[in-house]
Design a protein around this nucleic acid. Structure first.
Length: 320
DNA sequence: AACACTCGCAACCGCGCACAA
DNA sequence: ATTGTGCGCGGTTGCGAGTGT
């Protein structure tokens, strides 16, 4: 496991231990949770069981030792989609988003999102080299840059007429898309050209909604239901089938622009900026949370003896 | 082969909230 | 009402692995 190999400064601050966890420490921590549940973290140190802060113990449990975690498993297309959806709705509320993803922690989601942002920023940079020449203080100059991104992305994926099966066979088994909805497979571009795109982002191009479907796109469905996103109108015409995708892309690229520090893209001109979706959507989100199935392990902690059926945890060095 | 760079991720830090004394 | 403690959350850091040149 990588953790063992890390040479973080495991200095001793008085009695306090920091840095990578050892297998023995994990064992002590697991035993504590077995007996008392995932609480009283500070008592672990006060009892002299570990020279770690309660905070550190909690983090280790939540992120690595908790049962049913998908450690070392990449985010599926489904999970990617969920994260993207929820981030657009809730913002950087990673803990909240993580409750919608079984086996994922807030740290996982946070890291996933961070990586994704970097990836998209890189794509943006390499795809639109002229954008760096744009004046930075001119509002007039910024809005076109944003439009350029759209047209750039649109042209990327509309210019190719690659074959539709075989290499581009990624599927999206989104729970948001009901069986009754008409989904047409469309010719796919050569997505291999864009290695930075995630599986979910690839899969976006596989759906082509008829106009009658667009209103049901975001309706709560299936076992996971998300609040509806209002039909927002951009300040320029878009093909109907592009609207959903563009909406998502807008979030992405707005974030990217922010990341690049350039931007101040004049939010008044960008009706789809996340901040405009904020309160109302968050409110709706709260109501629909009730019907969702969050990972309730922590909230509804099982009987202590449930751990008796759990295989002894391998030490981090044994993890692959 | 050696170096530089990027990526993914574990862990830490600071802040804020809840609650009990 | 105030203070102290415990905990949770989001942001940040630093390291090893992977990849490119």
């Amino acid at each position: 496991m990588v953790v063992e190999g890390k040479r973080r400064m495991a200095h001793h601050n008085g009695e306090l231990k920091k840095g990578p966890w050892k297998a023995e420490e994990d064992e002590v921590l697991v035993n504590h949770v077995k007996r008392f549940g995932p609480r009283d973290w500070s008592s672990i140190r006060s009892k002299g069981l570990l020279q770690r802060t309660g905070k550190s113990c909690r983090l280790r449990w939540v992120n690595k030792l908790r049962p049913n975690l998908k450690n070392g498993v990449k985010f599926s297309a489904e999970e990617e989609r969920t994260v993207i959806e929820l981030q657009a709705q809730f913002g950087n509320k990673w803990a909240k988003i993580a409750t919608y993803l079984s086996g994922r922690t807030d740290n996982d989601v946070k890291n996933f999102w961070s990586s994704r942002q970097k990836r998209l920023a890189r794509i943006l940079q390499t795809s639109a080299p002229s954008s760096s020449n744009s004046p930075k203080n001119s509002k007039e100059a910024k809005a076109p840059a944003f439009h350029d991104v759209r047209s750039l992305e649109a042209s990327k994926f509309s210019s190719s007429t690659e074959e539709e099966s075989g290499t581009n066979s990624q599927s999206c088994s989104s729970p948001h898309i009901g069986d009754s909805e008409m989904i047409k497979m469309v010719p796919l571009p050569d997505l291999g050209q864009y290695p930075g795109l995630l599986a979910y982002e690839h899969s976006l191009f596989q759906f082509n909604y008829t106009p009658s479907d667009k209103n049901t796109l975001m309706e709560p469905q299936s076992h996971l239901s998300f609040p509806s996103i209002p039909q927002l109108q951009p300040d320029f015409p878009l093909p109907l089938e592009s609207q959903d995708f563009i909406t998502r892309l807008d979030h992405t690229f707005l974030d990217v622009f922010e990341l690049a520090g350039g931007s101040a893209l004049g939010t008044a001109q960008l009706p789809m900026a996340p901040s405009f979706l904020g309160p109302e959507i968050a409110k709706n989100g709260e109501t629909s949370c009730a019907v969702m199935t969050p990972n309730s392990f922590i909230d509804d902690f099982p009987p202590i003896d449930m751990f008796d059926d759990i295989e002894p945890l391998p030490s981090p060095s044994e993890w692959s």
